[in-house]
Nucleic acid binder design. Structure first.
Lengths: 153, 153
DNA sequence: CTTCCAAACGAGAATTTGTTTCATTAAGTC
DNA sequence: GACTTAATGAAACAAATTCTCGTTTGGAAG
């Protein structure tokens, strides 16, 4: 991934879609715009995104939301996060430089984010060696947070 | 995490459970034994584990399977993997040294595993700095595999 | 060894998340 | 402007996981 998806323009999206035989639709553009407008570190589930669309008086169906999230993940525009919450969350993919990772408490599900450039480098090297074209690199650390360690249980 | 869960004995499991006010049951022991007997790299879903139990004429309900998998993940005995397959998979947690990571193709869902000691170190350092007690460290790389790059779409 | 209480169990219902179907609309190409 | 086919919306459907509840049983205490 070599583009900074925050500054993705309408035309760039159209181009990338058409290159793959996919179509540039108002729904897809709208969804991209919403993710671009979110503050860094915000990640939304399909439901949350759908609610926001309704709030903005956009009539986009839940099916379309799910379909679009998948496509944009496969295109490398979004990253799909599977953390402690029960459903998947999505956020703009800021690879390769601006990436952050997650530290999750297995007791209270608290999530901390942290930046770590080294991980992406190591990951990239590994993937290159196996001929993969990397879109996203996610490091998840699971453990017990300080509070839960004290509560002992 | 400081124990190599492959050599976990009955007594160790009982102890660790009781320490947390949980009970040592035949079902929990049986499930641990099964994971210990699997070859490295094998990861099973709740369904698969349940089928294996039935095959071994163990009458353990699916509810109990799910409950046990959760508990053992929280105890650091198992790692919960969320890869491209549609449901969660579990395997013995071999932290801190024997860990492996995953490289997933977003097109065909092919998964490669690779070992990388450096990642665990970086992760451990980060977690320590924030006061977390690390149980597991997972690096997931998403990208396009060589085959899918050629098929262009 | 018996008693007691709460944790864990099994069975099945219920919930939740995500996918599929299909008729209709509309993007992109000629 | 017409044509082809991808994309959409609505609703049915499916699968995975959680919850409920009556019953069983681990383990602490006497």
């Amino acid at each position: 991934m070599s583009t900074l998806n925050v500054m993705y323009s309408d035309e760039m999206l159209k181009q990338q879609l058409n290159d793959q035989g996919l179509r540039f639709t108002p729904q897809r553009l709208k969804i991209l715009k919403i993710f671009q407008s979110l503050p860094r570190g915000t990640h939304w589930s399909a439901e949350e995104l759908h609610e926001e669309l309704l709030a903005q008086a956009e009539r986009i169906s839940l099916s379309t939301v799910y379909r679009t999230l998948h496509i944009m993940t496969r295109m490398g525009i979004l990253r799909e996060l599977e953390l402690a919450e029960e459903h998947k969350h999505y956020e703009l993919n800021r690879s390769p430089s601006g990436q952050h990772h997650h530290l999750i408490c297995v007791h209270c599900n608290r999530i901390l984010e942290f930046a770590e450039a080294g991980v992406d480098k190591i990951g990239g090297k590994q993937a290159d060696a196996m001929g993969y074209h990397v879109l996203d690199c996610q490091l998840n650390l699971y453990g017990v947070c300080p509070d839960c360690q004290n509560q002992r249980h």
